[in-house]
Amino acid sequence: MTSFLIRRLVYGALLMLGVVVLNFLLIRMAPGDPAVVIAGEMGGASEEMLAAIRQDYGLTEPLIVQLGIYLGNVLRGDLGQSFFFNQSVVSLIAQRIGPTILLVLSAQVLSIVIGTALGVLAARKPSGLLSGLVSVFATIGYAVPVFWTGIMLIILFASVLPVFPVEGMASIKLRDAPWIIRAADIAHHLVLPAFTLAIIYLAQYARLSRASMMEVLGADYIRTARAKGTPERTVLFHHALRNAALPILTVAGLQFGNLISGALLVETVFNWPGMGRLAFDSILRRDYPTIMGVLFFASAMVVVANILTDLSYRLADPRLRGGA
């Protein structure tokens, strides 16, 4: 297990190295003077500023040296300076990564828990009403643009049924309230964005877990469990779901990158102060160091999610534990 973890971590680090090299190449491949590209479009950077950038990034050196300098900076935790926000990229992202993680994880948990529960219930009656609804819902959920779902929910909840806030992450008037009230306020703000993001995946997990459960429920060991007098609920949630969860886990890992992409759009729609919103703002300003920083951290989140998925897969499936 430990050696597996070490191997996974080394591989993850290599992937991140790849992301850094890609970032470097993208900036250099962009048309125009890299110094101007890095400074961003802010109504013309001053000559001193450009000179400072050339100095920092070693832009007069050969390409390979520039890459070395860039890698060295990243290793020291320096992803550059955002000239638009006038802050280091790392500190900018540090302010924004929390809300994004909160949003993405909430959506992930919501979609897996509700989706799996629906799928399990549907699997008990393969031709029942719920089964039909699950497949229709999955087909529809896949085809709806996530940002449009968000907008429709805003229209619904802002004008028709104003029970959830439709914008931002916290109410300004509660800024000085005790933490528990602020936490509740954030949770209240989280409902619509998290649900918007979860809804697509929820439908897919429902369809997947239904198929997976139906397969598992036909397995011999389920018959064995029933033959020893196990109550149906224990058969479903103890014996069957633990096996049926394996493909769900795989997909959850694979979907994580898509979830982050979706979060980008959802944050923009709901003004959620996360990395997606930051990416959007910095792209409009052509603030490349920030964009590249977001790409770096978003990829890092996917790498971490993949490692966690692999680990939990091993914990869930004893056949993968130990050797091999």
């Binding site: 060991y221 018959r223 007098g229």
Partner: peptide, 26 residues
Amino acid sequence: RLRAVRGAEVAMIFQEPMTSLNPVLT
């Protein structure tokens, strides 16, 4: 009543020992 009978009064073993035990439980 059937659940109380199964396993306690009438027990059963199956043909395929490879697949008749739950792979994720000891």
